[in-house]
Design a protein around this nucleic acid. Sequence first.
DNA 1: CTAAAACCTGACGTTGACGTGAGAGACAAG
DNA 2: CTTGTCTCTCACGTCAACGTCAGGTTTTAG
Lengths: 127, 127
Amino acid sequence: MRIGELATGAGVSVRSLRYYEEQGLLKAARSSGGQRHYPDSAVDRVHLIQMLYAAGLTSRTILDLLPCVDANVNTPESRALLRAERSRIDQQIVQLRQARDRLDAVIAHSESPGSGCTRTEAEALAS
Amino acid sequence: MRIGELATGAGVSVRSLRYYEEQGLLKAARSSGGQRHYPDSAVDRVHLIQMLYAAGLTSRTILDLLPCVDANVNTPESRALLRAERSRIDQQIVQLRQARDRLDAVIAHSESPGSGCTRTEAEALAS
DNA sequence: CTAAAACCTGACGTTGACGTGAGAGACAAG
DNA sequence: CTTGTCTCTCACGTCAACGTCAGGTTTTAG
């Protein structure tokens, strides 16, 4: 498949696919005319890359991680990297939960029946 | 307290505090010489701002949200905004969990006793 | 009173993941 | 063969949350 089709199929922009290749995350065969050609499996590959981006990993980290995911590499360094990123994601989840809980408190207050916004209520929430 | 003290106390840079003020998130009294002066409560305020930043909110969104947190504003629009951001955070948590689970699978494989990196094992993981 | 430390206002630099043309070549359809 | 669509490679633009440097002022310690 060509780049446009892959972009549509994976739900990303053509620009992103070229960028992934530039970062070494996605390889492409080339036609005689220089156009990129991908196997069907590239769709899943792009989904994986997107998932890691969504988790806040950088291109560089993903580049280091992909060989582990492909199970081609299994060194002490790669295992440490995997655990480090997993731990980072865990912490991120904790932070998000805290923020969500905080918003929930505000929401609960704003939707409560006696939402008169008195000073004491406001101060209680701010604590 | 002055800006340096607040920065140390809240664990952020002086530059960040000036930026928050520039964005309208943090007000400061001024001394006769023009220097910023904050009440003690500013430390908690900054922590709150940081929490929302950590949850991926933009300055603009935080600016819109802070009046709700202060319980000074309670309109249909503000409630919708609160719910929208809460929902966004929820989705973000889901995505992070997916990525984490994915990494866990890779980690489990890389640390399994028979981690010989055979083709079948690699293909099983890639699915 | 004076020197050091902290603070002030601009204003340009940084980083990452793309967006957005420009200009030209490649390819399928009729 | 030609037209339209897709693709190619530069290469500059963007946006957010600051970092950093410059040059000058204010406050504090001694």
